[in-house]
Design a protein around this nucleic acid. Structure first.
Length: 487
RNA sequence: GGCGGUAUCGUCUAGGGGACUAGGACACAGCCCUCUCAAGGCUGGAACACGGGUUCGAAUCCCGUUACCGCUACCA
């Protein structure tokens, strides 16, 4: 890592779907290293596959990165715009004799491949077009015969010192003379990537380890093009709970899915950072983006694929929800409250002290923003919905509960000073006077106030609700209990 | 099939020859706290894939086996 001085890194997704958690993690590591070392983080959209690339996907990638807080340096590069250079590089390779035209049709290749496989062997292009006399090649080109350009793989071995795997090497004999330019003149992935990485002066290529077998081909291309080699770092994959590559079968796989599920961006980033990387030793797992930047190093990169555990992500989210400065939580969740129809963001900020108090009470009890929003319902509006299970348990004997709640209401009505200490003293005194435990009073009261069996401390609930609304809700509960007793 | 990669609790991981009766976190179970639910604290069960080496000594080094993953396109 000591030789990584201000590296130029890039994240190069193809816009054929939403920003996947695996891609997000790759982007994150590139970004983290760039920010840690004072390097540069570039973004390139690999849209050369026109059939599968969409503008929607491109937008989703931008939005996903922005949501995570991963900002990129310099202008976004669209690979499709570099077609002329890709073709020029292919032509240069042809001119230098490092590549050759191949007139074999896709059908012929497929046939030979099938035959080789039927014979139990592996197919390898036999270089027959490389042996064509120059005059014959000229004749076919002049005649307009379609051709692809193949790279002539030299003899020997191709190896590199991977930042995560150390030395990896491939005997060149196992690598086919791969196509670099299609018959329609467009470049194949490996050529486009190398051409662009050279043009963008990328010095460290950090990507998924599914690219390991592309790497020797790319290294040969760099050498043939006379360009300096970048360093390579191949990150392990992220798998689903069943150990298989993450896919829709595993539920949410796009970062946008988690955003909508109520995961906070800092939690998502924190969770992703710890998949395939570790600061080493004993460390606090809950970290801010800033702490991640300071702790990040390629030394901590792991080789083993990891399993994406949604349970731990939720836990992580709960941790961030509970630890973030309250104003940040407000900014993050207020829009969700607005969407739930409770109040507008402006209305909430107009009652900021109250809202912060509410969030303080709710945030340790929720893991997802959606849960928090759902739990906030009783604090907005006049009425509450009584949950059947809570009613069945705490209002089991309506005839006995009603007078208790009436006594609670009367006691509270006698106090004008609406503070939790006073209320608690009064309630405990009342329980004593009635000869019951505090729970016998407070649990039915909780149902009356929020409609559920679980909530923040009941005295905080009353403060949050306010004196008048609290008293009205108790009265409403008494009425309801009277109906139940009569039924 | 060929080539490449990987292998520590169910999961994320610490570990770089003796400090390992293998540590932490998530999840799970129990207890404490307590007006409920969370949060928090404590406790518990739970792993070095297998077989050979090397060494006085191996989770750590080497080889093999097995399993899993990736690549093997005129996809990226």
């Amino acid at each position: 890592m000591s030789d990584l001085v201000a590296p130029r890194l890039r994240f190069a997704p193809s816009p054929t779907g939403y920003l996947h958690v695996g891609g997000a993690r790759t982007a994150l590591f590139n970004w983290l290293l760039a920010r840690r070392t004072g390097g540069t983080f570039l973004l390139r959209i690999e849209d050369t596959d026109k059939a599968r690339s969409t503008d929607d996907s491109t937008r989703a990638i931008f939005e996903g990165l922005r949501w995570l807080g991963l900002d990129w340096d310099e202008e976004v590069v669209f690979q499709g715009a570099n077609l002329p250079r890709h073709q020029a590089d292919a032509a240069a390779l042809l001119a230098r004799g490092r590549a050759y035209r191949c007139f074999c049709t896709p059908e012929e290749i497929a046939e030979r491949r099938a035959a080789a496989e039927a014979a139990g062997g592996a197919f390898a292009y036999d270089r027959r077009c490389d042996h064509l006399p120059a005059a014959e090649v000229e004749r076919r080109v002049a005649a307009g015969t379609p051709f692809v350009v193949r790279f002539r793989v030299p003899a020997g071995e191709t190896a590199w010192d991977d930042l995560v795997h150390e030395r990896i090497s491939f005997p060149n004999k196992d690598i086919d003379d791969f196509v670099i330019l299609r018959s329609d003149g467009t470049p194949i992935y490996n050529l486009a990537v190398v051409s662009d990485d050279i043009a963008m002066r990328v010095t460290l290529v950090m990507r998924g380890d599914d690219h390991i077998s592309n790497t020797p081909k790319q290294i040969m291309l760099y050498e043939a093009l006379g360009a300096p080699l970048p360093r390579f770092a191949h990150l392990p994959m992220i798998h689903g709970t069943d150990g298989k590559k993450l896919s829709k079968r595993h539920g949410a796989t796009a970062v946008g899915d988690y955003q909508h599920l109520g995961i906070l961006a800092p939690a998502m980033v924190n969770f992703l950072a710890l998949l395939g990387w570790s600061p080493g030793g004993d460390f606090e797992e809950v970290m801010t983006l800033d702490q991640l930047v300071h702790a990040f190093s390629t030394d901590g990169l792991l080789r083993k694929a990891s399993v994406f555990d949604p349970k731990k992500l939720e836990w992580m989210n709960g941790q961030h929800l509970a630890k973030l400065p309250i104003h940040e939580v407000e900014a993050l969740v207020a829009p969700h409250f607005a969407r739930a129809g409770y109040a507008t963001v402006d209305e909430l900020s107009a009652r900021r002290d109250w809202f912060h108090h509410l969030l303080e009470q709710l945030r340790v009890r929720a893991r997802l923003v959606d849960e928090l929003v759902a739990q906030a319902a009783p604090y907005f509006g006049e009425t509450v919905a009584y949950a059947p299970d809570a009613v069945a348990k705490q209002w089991k004997d309506p005839a006995a509960v009603r007078p208790l709640l009436a006594a609670v209401r009367e006691t509270l009505e006698a106090h004008l000073d609406w503070n939790p200490v006073m209320m608690e003293e009064a309630m405990r005194a009342l329980a004593d006077a009635k000869g019951v435990g505090a729970g016998k009073l407070l649990q039915p009261l909780r149902v009356a106030l929020v409609g559920t069996a679980a909530s923040p401390g009941i005295f905080d609930v009353m403060v949050l609700l306010g004196r008048d609304r609290t008293l009205r809700r108790i009265a409403a509960a008494e009425a309801r209990l009277a109906e139940m007793a009569a039924a």
